[in-house]
Amino acid sequence: MTQPPRILPPRVLIVAGSDSGGGAGLQADLKTVLALGGYGMTAVTALTAQNTEGVHAVLPVPADFVRRQMRVVLDDLGADAIKTGMLKDADIIAAVAAELPDGVPLVVDPVMIAKGGAALLDLTAIDALKRLLLPRTTVLTPNLPEAEALLGTAIGDLDAMKRAAEALLGLGPAAVLLKGGHLPGETVHDVLVDRSGVEVFSAPRIDSRHTHGTGCTLASALATGLGAGCPLADAVRRARDYVRAAIRTAPGFGRGHGPLGHGHTVGPF
């Protein structure tokens, strides 16, 4: 009897910093990829001494070593999608861009500032991000402060979000998912823009202090969907649904911005 073909999990390479508190960065990324049926791999760009109250110290990884991590992983294991998070400086951005394979979806979360206010991307690296990475990007996933830093303009409402997303598209990515959680109001809007048009995803705001790592989590969920072959809008819907459920099921740890319930798809012991 012929056995049905084995369905392999999408391979997702995460290029990002480590969060010692486990709520964001590589730790959140790997939890997300696994929870959504993928296989996660990593290239570490920085170590942080971090908890729910903030980032207390950052130790960058040398750019050459970031590049070597990517190279050996891609050479042996391959990847169906790549997601970048904290890249820290222009040298690391250049190293990452040099190792990106052609034809593999790339989700770029332009991590610039931690929730506690710590800078996670050197200001001098923004030009390198625009020049070297955004033209290679499948989906760019900035929040509003990150979009404002990239564009140099304030974004105050949904109409401004749509204009900003269009302007970000002009920097080179194939698509932009602009996240609107920083705007006040009972409804949170995210704006997806690509060459085919604009789509707005809206949902009631969840009142919770446990939102540490939501950006990392959303981008990794999106990368996992794209790696599995999902159409862009479907991958965005699944990623948003996963993040919202993770906020609702947050374990309640820590005194500050607590981590999400990444394992909600797995179930209790």
Rank of each mutant, 00 (worst) to 15 (best):
Val200Asp: 09
Ala235Asp: 06
Pro62Cys: 12
Leu218Glu: 06
Gly256Ile: 11
Pro251Cys: 14
Ala219Glu: 08
Val188Phe: 01
Asp122Met: 01
Val200Asn: 09
Asp64Tyr: 06
Pro62Phe: 09
Lys88Gly: 00
Pro110Asp: 07
Ala114Arg: 07
Gly225Thr: 08
Gly25Ile: 03
Asp102Ala: 15
Gly227Arg: 04
His262Phe: 15
Gln69Pro: 02
Thr187Ile: 12
Gly170Glu: 12
Leu36Arg: 14
Thr265Gly: 15
Arg6Met: 14
Ile247Val: 15
Lys88Asn: 02
Gln27Glu: 10
Ala97Thr: 04
Ser220Lys: 06
Val104Ile: 14
Ser208Trp: 02
Thr2Val: 05
Arg11Leu: 12
Leu120Thr: 05
Lys115Gln: 14
Val111His: 03
Val108Met: 09
Gly252Arg: 07
Tyr242Val: 11
Gln50Glu: 15
Thr249Ala: 15
His257Trp: 14
Leu26Arg: 05
Ala250His: 07
Cys230Asn: 15
Asp241Pro: 00
Ile93Ala: 04
Leu87Arg: 14
Arg255Tyr: 10
Ala164Val: 05
Leu226Asp: 06
Ala245Ile: 10
Met112Pro: 02
Ile82Gly: 06
Met1Pro: 07
Gly227His: 05
Gly197Ala: 13
His182Asp: 01
Gly197Pro: 13
Asp76Met: 06
Leu144His: 13
Ala250Phe: 07
Ala203Gln: 13
Asn143Arg: 08
Thr224His: 05
Gly215Cys: 10
